[in-house]
Amino acid sequence: MKMQNKIALVTGGSRGLGKNMALALAAKGIDILLTYNSQQAEAENVVSEIESLGRKAAALQLNVADSKTFDGFFQNVTGALQTKFGTDKFDFMINNAGIGLYAPFAEFSEETFDTLFNIHLKAPFFITQKALPLMNDGGGIVNVSTGLTRFSLPGYSGYATMKGAMETLTKYMAKELGARGIRSNIIAPGAIETDFGGGRVRDNAELNAFVASQTALGRVGLPDDIGGVVAFLCSDEAKWVNAQRIEVSGGQFI
């Protein structure tokens, strides 16, 4: 009897870091269920890339900012698991979807705060909670933080606050889900060249050069620097890694 392939659910998997995570997981032999908010064509392109690696993949729409849609989303997950993957469970929950919104603390609006809260804290909390009945024992959760919880730069107070909360939540997930053999870890990327936050690290030459000058390896991060770490955390090689914050920043501000 053929063993069922392991499956990872990656939120925000149509571009940027999420796309890189999905491809790195697929390269490790894991099938992928990825979500997109509005970029369906991009998401389907990622599905095609994953299938070209010999893995199964599917893309589902999800707006992580709207928690009222989560129950309906998981009905769609159940359907996709059955039709595309021939199973009713998945193994790894990757909470990657995010948005970059920045302002000085003195000028930070309540609306912006609420948006960051809904996307970066409320969504991973309740998406993971609602995923639990569909997750196999012995799987794993990977959350995403930021180097900005360890060092501080003006303008990131709201964003970093949500990520700091995610680091605490990750430990509680590890503690409470350990009885099911589900591990929970969080990665903390440094500054990465993507379109995140309007592409500021990628497109602002002054900011890019500043970050590179403050990074031990002498450059800004690229998506390819991140995905493999997530794939590692979803592998048997990482079976004893649990409740950890793993910074992936090239040695930024050390």
Rank of each mutant, 00 (worst) to 15 (best):
K68A: 13
A209P: 04
E110F: 05
G86D: 12
G12E: 14
M93V: 00
D114L: 05
T168G: 11
V144I: 08
S145F: 00
R150D: 12
S249Q: 07
T146R: 06
N242F: 05
S109M: 07
I187C: 11
G228L: 04
F232V: 11
A209E: 15
N20V: 05
S235L: 05
G138L: 05
M162Q: 06
G190T: 09
T78D: 13
G13V: 05
E237P: 01
I50C: 12
S184D: 04
M21R: 02
D236A: 09
F232P: 13
K171S: 00
L134Y: 13
Q4N: 13
K19M: 01
E167C: 04
V46G: 01
G16D: 12
R245F: 00
M135E: 12
N45K: 08
A216I: 07
G140L: 02
P189G: 02
S67M: 09
D224V: 11
I182L: 06
G251T: 03
I226D: 15
G54Y: 12
K84V: 14
I50W: 13
P104T: 03
F90W: 09
G227D: 10
Q61I: 02
G147A: 11
A205F: 03
F210P: 04
L62R: 06
A231C: 08
F126L: 14
L9Y: 06
R180D: 04
I119N: 09
E247H: 06
L33H: 09
S67F: 01
I254P: 15
K175C: 04
V47E: 11
S184K: 00
E42M: 03
R245A: 08
D88E: 06
K2I: 04
D203M: 08
Y159T: 06
L101G: 08
I246M: 15
A160Y: 02
A188G: 15
S48K: 06
E247Q: 07
G228D: 15
G98S: 03
E247N: 07
G158W: 09
I192D: 14
E167S: 12
Y36F: 05
D66S: 03
A243N: 15
E237M: 08
E44L: 11
L25W: 00
A103R: 07
K2W: 00
A174F: 01
F253K: 07
A188Q: 11
A41M: 11
